[in-house]
Amino acid sequence: MSDNHHRRLDRRVDRIQGRLPDPMARALGRIRTPSATWIRVPAGILLVLGGIFSFLPVLGVWMLPLGLVLLAYDIPPLKAPIGRVLVWGERRWREWKRRRRGNARPYS
């Protein structure tokens, strides 16, 4: 079962990585390698802490989900819920774009 969760997480992060600019996509690819655990875990913890303290300048709520995704690669109980949240978020994003496109008015 855990292998299915890992594959789901990988597929979703692959899609995100494919939409990023090349330098960011390469950096994400390096962080996702199995040998990068020593970078991924501290970065994930720091991002989660930064997301918790998002009321401070420079830090933001965007840091929390990014940190959780990084931690999900190394903490098995996080893989299933984070994978589900990524699937849910992608669906919501597509629905939002579809609604927005439908509400767009042509220029007169």
Rank of each mutant, 00 (worst) to 15 (best):
L78E: 08
P42Y: 05
R32Y: 06
D74N: 13
W96M: 09
V48K: 03
Y73L: 04
L59T: 03
D74M: 06
L78N: 03
A25V: 03
G29V: 09
G67Q: 10
R92H: 12
R7T: 08
R12T: 02
D3G: 08
R100A: 07
W62C: 02
V48Q: 04
W88N: 05
K79L: 12
P34L: 12
I39E: 14
D74C: 04
A104I: 05
R8W: 12
A25I: 04
F53K: 04
P77F: 13
L86D: 00
L64E: 01
V69N: 00
R11S: 09
I16P: 06
A72T: 05
R98I: 02
I39C: 06
V58W: 14
G102F: 04
E95Y: 04
T37L: 06
D74Q: 10
E95T: 03
Q17C: 08
R11F: 13
D74T: 11
D14S: 12
R19F: 12
I39G: 01
I82S: 00
I52A: 10
N4W: 09
M63D: 02
G29P: 00
I16L: 15
G60S: 15
K97H: 14
R92D: 00
P34M: 11
L47Y: 08
R91S: 08
R11P: 00
G50K: 10
G18H: 14
V61L: 09
R15V: 09
A25P: 03
D74W: 01
V41L: 07
V87G: 03
P34T: 09
G29Q: 04
R12H: 14
L66P: 01
I31G: 01
R8Y: 04
R7Q: 07
R30W: 15
R11Q: 10
L59N: 00
L47W: 01
P21G: 13
G89K: 12
L49C: 14
G44F: 00
N4R: 11
S35P: 01
I31P: 00
R101H: 10
L9E: 00
G83C: 12
R11C: 09
Y107F: 07
P21A: 15
W96S: 03
V61P: 09
F53A: 13
R105Y: 07
D74Y: 05
D10N: 14
R94E: 05
R84T: 00
R26M: 13
G102D: 13
A36K: 06
A80P: 00
V41F: 11
R99K: 15
R15P: 01
N103E: 15
R30I: 11
G18Y: 05
I39D: 08
R100I: 01
D3T: 06
Q17V: 06
R94K: 14
K79C: 03
W96A: 03
L28E: 05
D14E: 15
R84S: 07
F53M: 10
R94C: 05
S108I: 10
L86K: 08
L46A: 05
R101W: 11
V58P: 00
W96H: 12
L78W: 10
D3Y: 14
G29L: 01
A27V: 14
I75A: 07
G50C: 08
K97Y: 07
S2Q: 11
L66K: 06
D10V: 05
L49W: 14
L28Q: 02
R100F: 04
A36E: 05
R8G: 02
M1T: 07
L47F: 08
H6S: 09
P65F: 14
E90A: 14
L9P: 02
L68T: 08
P42V: 03
V48L: 10
E90M: 11
S54W: 09
G51Y: 01
S54R: 11
